[in-house]
């Protein structure tokens, strides 16, 4: 992370000063509304902060967390969710974006809109819809699965079936955002690139792998990293579908944070969980930055 010793020409030094001007609005927001809460949250994680009292207890919260089976189960489930959700969120929207690129604005817009709608549909409707599909008594997807796996099959009774089902729901509920990003990036690729490639006799596959994907690389990195972060912070849908059960097998770390803070009023403990989740996320993001760091492609 340390920048190498760099030499700046006077011109560059002048420009660098402008960089801080451009950064200023972000920095201001960051300091007031992020740095402070972040540090506060971290400090609190070393206390037994609850309603009306806050005492320094050192690493006690962390010790409790690492000996708690609920944490390990939730962590395992969180990573399980991520491993399914992340690739779906990276590649399915890319495929859709590439497919609809050929169409005129009307259809193109309609697809993006439709993909975005679940993200803005009220949760009452979402819950109704999922029950309609997945309720163990009457859901049509469940009835179908029962035909395959037998009448006693109950998809939410074990993590190995519940997590994939929930993960797919999550990935498809959040298709729209990524699709829009990919579409915007695809639109920005100058058309002459394809024209030139076609003149050189490049196939469509060549054009996809040699032009589209390399030029989209910064966008793909963005989606890759943000969907990993997002997947590690999955929370609402498992809560609505299984409450994290049976016995925390489909729970997530964020679900634990929420119930520690708002169920047990253990704000210190919740913060410690938050710090751990943050560190896990940071490790994943760092690995991804390493993997994806290449020369940036410019056009």
């Amino acid at each position: 992370m340390n920048p190498k010793k760099q030499k700046y020409t006077p011109r560059e030094r002048y420009k660098a000063r402008w960089a801080y001007v451009f950064l200023a609005p972000w920095l201001l927001m960051f300091l007031i509304f992020y740095a402070y809460p972040l540090i506060y949250g971290t400090i609190v994680s070393f206390t037994n902060y609850t309603i009306g009292s806050m005492k320094w207890i050192g690493l006690e919260n962390y010790r409790t967390i690492f000996t708690d089976y609920r944490f390990w189960r939730s962590l395992r489930a969180t990573i399980f969710y991520m491993l399914i959700v992340m690739p779906l969120q990276v590649f399915v929207p890319l495929w859709i974006a590439n497919t609809i690129q050929a169409y005129k604005r009307g259809f193109n817009t309609a697809v993006k809109l439709v993909a975005y709608i679940p993200g803005v549909t009220c949760s009452v409707a979402l819950v109704l819809a999922w029950r309609f599909m997945l309720d163990p008594n009457i859901g049509f997807v469940t009835s179908f699965l029962k035909k395959i796996f037998g009448a006693r099959f109950s998809p939410f009774n074990t993590a190995s079936t519940a997590i994939p089902i929930i993960a797919v729901l999550i990935a498809f509920t959040n298709l729209g955002a990524t699709l829009i990003i990919y579409s915007a990036a695809l639109n920005a690729i100058p058309a002459d690139y394809y024209e030139a490639a076609e003149l050189d006799g490049a196939t469509r596959w060549d054009q996809l792998t040699k032009i589209t994907i390399p030029l989209l690389q910064p966008t793909i990195v963005y989606v890759f990293i943000t969907s990993t972060i997002g997947a590690l912070q999955i929370f609402v849908i498992p809560q609505l579908m299984t409450q994290g059960g049976p016995n925390f097998m489909t729970s997530t770390v964020l679900l634990l944070i929420y119930s520690a803070a708002f169920g047990d009023n253990k704000f210190g403990y919740a913060s410690a969980l938050g710090v751990i989740l943050f560190l896990i996320t940071a490790i994943f993001a760092l690995i991804q930055f390493r993997i994806t760091r290449r020369e940036t492609v410019e056009y």
Binding site: P3, A19, W26, I229, A270, T281
Partner: peptide
């Protein structure tokens, strides 16, 4: 723009992205 501390600042951007919002309520 090339400027000193760029990586540090960018790490801060990423850090805010990674912090679970529920913990910060």
């Amino acid at each position: 723009i090339k400027f000193p501390g760029k990586n540090v600042f960018f790490a801060l951007v990423m850090a805010t992205l990674m912090m679970p919002k529920q913990m910060l309520l």
